[in-house]
């Protein structure tokens, strides 16, 4: 699950370098409001889920994202 998510996440945001569970994903150079749309599409495509903005705002790290996906899926 973790590696599969990280691969899909990197592809969606076009991230070249390494991604760690403890990374604060909003600090990535690639992160912006357009990347957010790519992430929404990826979550729908790969996991069939939506994470509403109010909840998404509370997620800080890549690990938080994975936990939220596991909870929603």
């Amino acid at each position: 699950m973790q590696q599969q998510f990280i691969d899909a996440f990197k592809e969606a945001l076009e991230i070249e370098g390494g991604v760690q569970l403890t990374d604060n994903f909003r600090d990535y150079d690639e992160w912006d409001s357009l990347a957010r749309l790519s992430l929404i599409a990826m979550l729908d495509d790969e996991y069939g889920i939506q994470i509403e903005d109010a909840k998404f705002e509370q997620l800080k790290t890549v690990g938080d994202l994975i936990a939220a996906v596991e909870q929603a899926a």
Binding site: L37, I40, A41, D44, Q50, E52, D53, F56
Partner: peptide
């Protein structure tokens, strides 16, 4: 506009 939640809404 909250574009992210609009997109979520459209997908749902």
């Amino acid at each position: 506009m909250n574009g992210a939640d609009v997109f979520n809404f459209v997908l749902r």
